[in-house]
Design a binder for these strands. Structure first.
Length: 511
RNA sequence: GCCGCGUUGGUCAAUCGGUUAAGACGCCUCCCUUUCACGGAGGAAUGACGAGUUCGACUCUCGUACGUGGUACCA
């Protein structure tokens, strides 16, 4: 095969709730891989489980991908040539293939009721085998077209007795395939169960749908989480049984994202417990009425979010850690994805965001900051003023939301003061200093950084007071706390009038 | 239980048989800043264990341990 096919990757989430970090990463890697190879990235909605369908989840997923800047080229939101992209809308296609498999002897009808299945598992359960499967060992004891006479099966079908179609796993075969990350993977066919392909309600299970759709949508590279590895042999067999072996996509099973503490996959609950988001954006669950915080709303930049996710399980091999999307596309390769799972580290995640805020031009930064301040009811005076504020405080903001605390005092006099700290330095001569300072400020003809700093320091020297002490108090007067950029910068920005009022205000409080 | 996958500092990780085993986050110290950050300089901290292959193993093989995933008419 000298001619290589056009790369087509897909992200195939099921619309059952908030979009998890790991899901975004899978989408991201699929996107990066497709773009790197000038291919197409497809979004396919795997809504075959009617009972788990959640209203609004699909649009939410689309919105999340859009926020991350990794929107799909084809999907339910577009008019792609492989539509429809919702499996529920493709329902009729799957049955045909299931029947084809029955026809060719690779699948069979099974009429066992859920109760009967339960009974079988209960009866066959032993300490050595706590979870018996419907497989090559047990299927001949069950109620299916393998154990029933042909006429019996036909009668049941004619009577519309509910049934499922199961794959008939072969005996004594080693199913082998190559994973782009892990290399050759082998499985003993005797050990994997006869997975249901077509459910009682006529919907396909994931196993059938993923194969049929990947084939029909001409997917060339299929990336998914490591949790799919155990059922991969079923999919590999299906590709071959359906006669599509030559077209099977290249697989890559991505390592899991683990809890930062303890063990196991990172879940929404861990985020709640440990105080960080797990979903890309706020997710409102219509069933419970609860909203779960997302990275976006917490103040993450999408650029930082995909950057940190990309580096969670993949590394370029070089020291560089901050990547733009374009740079990621350029540098990404599946071979450099780690095999082992990675524990999520929120501190590092925040570091990425901080780096992105520092790196962002002041003007772009202002675009994000403006709505945040406005939503808090702050009158931003003018864009020029805001721009100056942003340039002064941006390096000390880790999350976008930090801009509020770091810049309110440029717009409003502080409501609360760190009086504890002031009192340690307060004394009669300090009071005298500030009284005199107000008067000198009044006489200043020019209000700029140099003028007021000179005035301030000259007075301290005159009064024989440590500049640092009064400067520190001055900071609390203007800001309310022990933070923020240089005091004289702040003072210059807020103006003479405001500066004088704030001095007076705190002096009043100190009696 | 069985099967799959994995295992370099607390965390993310480089190394693709020969290095004093990078770098980053976090932590600590110092400098800068008479605030807090930013920035700069330093520091502590790593190859799960046991065999084998090899002149030489973090790197290859096997075993053990541990972790993780799966074992549904969920994806």
């Amino acid at each position: 095969m000298i001619m290589s096919k056009k790369v087509r990757t897909r992200f195939a989430p099921s619309p059952t709730g908030g979009l998890h970090l790991g899901g975004v990463r899978t989408a991201l890697y699929s996107y990066l891989y497709a773009k790197k190879h000038k291919g197409t990235f497809v979004l396919r909605v795997e809504d075959t489980d009617q009972t788990r369908f959640v209203d609004g989840a699909e649009q939410y997923i689309i919105d999340c991908l859009a926020w991350c800047g990794i929107s799909a080229d084809e999907g339910p939101h577009t008019q792609g040539e492989y539509a429809p992209y919702r499996q529920s809308e493709r329902k009729e296609m799957y049955k045909k293939y299931a029947l084809q498999l029955v026809e060719s002897g690779h699948a069979y009808y099974a009429f066992d009721t859920p109760e009967e299945l339960e009974k079988m598992r209960e009866q066959l359960k032993t300490p050595q085998n706590p979870s018996p499967q419907y497989d090559t060992h047990t299927r001949m004891h069950m109620k299916n077209s393998l154990t029933l006479l042909k006429e019996e099966t036909e009668k049941l079908l004619a009577d519309q007795v509910p049934y499922v179609i199961r794959i008939k796993m072969p005996k004594n075969e080693t199913v082998t395939f190559t994973d782009m990350i892990r290399g050759e993977i082998k499985n003993d066919s005797n050990l994997v169960d006869d997975k249901v392909l077509l459910k009682g309600d006529g919907m396909p299970t994931y196993h059938l749908a993923v194969v049929v759709d990947d084939y029909l949508m001409k997917i060339t590279h299929a990336f998914r989480g490591e949790e799919w590895l155990p059922s991969a042999p079923v999919h590999v067999l299906l590709w071959s049984y359906l006669g599509w072996g030559h077209a099977m996509p290249h697989w890559a099973h991505l390592p899991l994202i683990l809890k930062p503490d303890g063990h196991g996959k990172l879940s929404k609950r861990d985020g709640d417990r440990l105080g960080f988001p797990v979903f890309a954006m706020d997710w409102y669950d219509p069933k419970t009425g609860e909203t779960t915080k997302g990275f976006k709303e917490l103040g993450f930049l999408p650029e930082a979010f995909i950057n940190l996710l990309a580096l969670l399980g993949w590394s370029s091999g070089e020291e560089k850690e901050i990547f733009t999307k374009e740079e990621l596309i350029e540098a990404f390769s599946m071979e450099r994805v780690h095999k082992g799972g990675a524990k999520f580290d929120f501190e590092k995640a925040k570091w990425f965001n901080h780096e992105w805020i520092k790196k962002m031009p002041v003007a772009s930064c202002e675009l994000f900051v403006k709505p945040i301040l406005e939503s808090k009811g702050i009158d931003i005076k003018s864009d020029e003023y805001l721009l100056n504020v942003v340039s002064l405080v941006k390096d000390r903001c880790t999350l976008l939301n930090d801009f509020y605390v770091q810049s309110v005092y440029f717009f409003q006099a502080p409501q609360e003061f760190d009086l504890e700290s002031v009192k340690l330095k307060w004394s009669a001569d300090k009071a005298d200093f500030f009284t005199e300072l107000i008067s000198r400020y009044g006489q200043l003809t020019e209000w700029n950084l140099e003028a007021l700093e000179t005035c301030f320091k000259a007075l301290a020297t005159e009064k024989n007071i440590k500049v640092g002490d009064v400067q520190f108090i001055y900071r609390i007067m203007l800001v309310g706390g022990k933070y923020g950029p240089g005091v004289f910068h702040i003072s210059e920005m807020i103006g003479k009038q405001d500066s004088m009022e704030r001095i007076q205000r705190l002096m009043g409080l100190l009696g």
